[in-house]
């Protein structure tokens, strides 16, 4: 874990309010597991912004993020050549047992981002990707998922791209005919509640999002309530997560 100096190679809008930023790094970047994140410095801001890592190789990394506030707005306006610091890779990604052969990825909106690199982390596992968006203007990473997944189903709530409806319903239709070892999910809280309610009867791992301070577990700001037996524990999304077992998370 280190603070790296990153230089922007490109910073482009890829969907409605969504940007992809690519960085180069003179130092050798470490390996990472899909689901891990970086803690990015933003000019003129006190707090860093935790963002899921999309891709990372020896001297390259990329992120995809939505403009949701002032920090991400500043980030979206930065130019090629601008330098930023980022602590990486942070958190526990999707650590999967070696016995898994077939896994479903279930994403909603920006939640699809940390799921994509999981496919490259586990080349021996077969992945089926179920990704949902509000409308066609919000769709991201279709080509990337299409290239890497065994099966792909993109949905939009208004039917303007892919199937009409929710990604969770598309997954439900496939659950009986596919022998999935697990479901990996990332999306909004209402979506996670639906997934919990659906009770898939196979392990479901979720990547949680929370406002963060330090990013390394020192400040206890990014708490997630997790059930351990009969007790509720406040775990830290940044270092105990961001990936948890969905049935243990109190939503």
């Amino acid at each position: 874990m280190k603070d790296y100096n990153l230089t922007i190679i490109s910073n482009n809008q890829i969907a409605r309010d969504v940007f992809k930023t690519e960085f180069s790094c003179q130092e050798q970047l470490p390996s990472f597991i899909g689901g891990q994140f970086l803690h990015l410095q933003v000019p003129c801001k006190i707090l860093r912004r935790p963002l899921g890592i999309l891709e990372m190789t020896a001297n390259y990394c990329s992120i995809v993020y939505a403009v949701v506030g002032e920090g991400t707005r500043i980030l979206s306006k930065m130019k090629k050549g601008d330098c930023l610091k980022a602590m990486l890779p942070l958190g526990n990604g999707f650590v999967l047992p070696k016995t898994y052969k077939k896994v479903a990825l279930l994403g909603g909106g920006l939640g699809v981002v940390p799921l994509l690199p999981v496919i490259n982390t586990y080349p021996e596992i077969e992945f089926c990707s179920y990704m949902g968006f509000k409308s066609r203007d919000d769709v991201i990473l279709y080509d990337e998922f299409n290239k890497l997944s065994k099966k792909i189903c993109f949905t939009t709530e208004d039917g303007s791209f892919g199937s009409c409806g929710f990604s969770i319903d598309a997954l439900k239709d496939d659950l009986e005919t596919n022998n999935f070892d697990a479901v990996l999910v990332c999306g909004s809280i209402p979506m996670l509640k639906e997934v919990k309610k659906a009770n898939f009867k196979i392990p479901v791992y979720v990547s949680m999002e929370e406002r963060m301070g330090c990013g390394v577990g020192a400040c206890l700001v990014c708490t997630c309530q997790v059930k351990k037996g009969n007790n509720i524990e406040n775990l830290r999304v940044c270092i105990d997560g961001p990936v948890f077992k969905l049935d243990e998370v109190a939503l």
């Binding site: 801001k45 006190i46 707090l47 002032e70 920090g71 929370e210 406002r211 963060m212 301070g213 400040c219 206890l220 700001v221 990014c222 708490t223 997630c224 509720i232 406040n234």
Partner: peptide, 22 residues
């Protein structure tokens, strides 16, 4: 256990927190 989340917000040149002594 401390307070519910969100527990932090950025403000001009500052950080506002409410961890609640977890």
């Amino acid at each position: 256990l401390g307070n519910p989340t969100p527990r932090i917000a950025e403000t001009p040149m500052g950080s506002l927190n409410s961890v609640g002594l977890q």
